[in-house]
């Protein structure tokens, strides 16, 4: 670690092959045109539901709202208990206790956003304490934001060190398994696909278990070409090290069609090994509603409506 300097990181990251912007966008658009029907669609819908990190990250979150969300996570469609459960609940760290209590031993994880989410503008000790709070309260997964200011000014070492330090904190609860670390790149602020690729590699080098596109507070959030670039990064990382890293698009994915496009892209880019909740997640809230409506349509043969699903 001590040999790792900003300069060596910079040399290495800037040595990564540049992203062909036109090619990446064309490839993503082409993958988005695949037609997924009938049994494949049913599989895709169920898989997508099981991959959701059901998210509420509002200043107005109340314990009641979080408990509601947990109830929805455990039983997404009251009319059909065969509906799969979502993967996790994603909340601010002060709501972790509430969510943990509401979810009990359902097997649904609690993810907490930390490190001065969403801006990430705080000193390292504050970020670590923020994370420590969530880990102590029983969070299974930590969604941290990188310091985009440091990244954009070329201070890769700072970004690296912060991720590594947060990773250490994730391992600090002796009573529980290590919390999974998801690193939010906030690709909407990174400006170029080259930066997305560099940030992905930087996060993986520093020990990320997951790389996540966005906070959901910035537009554009998760776009398909960005996901494509990130999936290429985790694929190449596996080729290099043998280890798998997960990917989580978040923000802006609202319809079943969007979700299916993402699943197609995962399958065609990283491979089918990533098509499980362990390695691919959707950060979303309204997406679940649309998936349930589509699921009801497949089950009953008639189009469903918002009166037949719970509103958040």
């Amino acid at each position: 670690m001590s040999a790792l300097s900003n300069r060596s990181l910079r040399t290495w990251l800037h040595g990564l092959p540049a992203v062909d912007q036109v090619g990446a966008e064309a490839r993503a658009a082409a993958l988005g045109t695949r037609s997924i029907k009938t049994t494949s669609k049913a599989w895709a819908i169920d898989t997508a539901i099981s991959m959701i990190d059901l998210t509420t990250l509002e200043g107005s979150d109340t314990p009641g709202k979080v408990r509601n969300l947990c109830a929805k996570a455990m039983l997404p469609d009251r009319a059909d208990p065969s509906t799969p459960r979502v993967a996790a609940i994603c909340v601010y760290n002060d709501m972790v206790t509430v969510a943990r209590e509401a979810l009990g031993d359902s097997g649904i994880n609690v993810a907490a956003v930390t490190t001065a989410f969403p801006s990430g503008r705080a000193s390292l000790p504050v970020k670590l304490l923020d994370t420590q709070d969530a880990v102590t309260a029983g969070a299974d997964e930590i969604d941290m934001v990188i310091d985009r200011g440091a990244f954009l000014s070329g201070d890769y070492r700072t970004v690296f060190d912060q991720i590594a330090a947060v990773k250490e904190v994730c391992r600090s609860n002796p009573d529980r398994a290590d919390a999974h670390l998801k690193v939010i790149l906030e690709t909407g602020e990174l400006a170029t696909y080259d930066n997305v690729r560099r940030a992905s590699w930087l996060a993986m080098l520093a020990g990320a278990d997951f790389i996540k596109t966005s906070t959901g507070k910035i537009s554009p959030a998760a776009t398909l070409p960005v996901i494509l670039v990130m999936l290429e990064a985790v694929r190449d990382w596996r080729g290099l090290t043998g280890a798998m890293v997960g990917v989580k698009p978040a923000g802006g994915i609202r319809t079943t069609k969007d979700a299916v496009k993402h699943l197609v892209t995962v399958n065609e880019t990283a491979g089918p090994d990533w098509l499980t909740p362990q390695w691919f997640r959707f950060g979303a809230s309204s997406l679940l509603t649309d998936l349930l409506l589509q699921r009801q349509k497949l089950r009953t043969g008639a189009y469903s409506g918002s009166d037949y699903v719970t509103e958040d």
């Binding site: 009801q296 008639a302 189009y303 409506g305």
Partner: peptide, 9 residues
């Protein structure tokens, strides 16, 4: 028939 069976109509 799709309009008649639609749950949101």
């Amino acid at each position: 028939p799709w309009l008649a069976s639609h749950h949101d109509v």
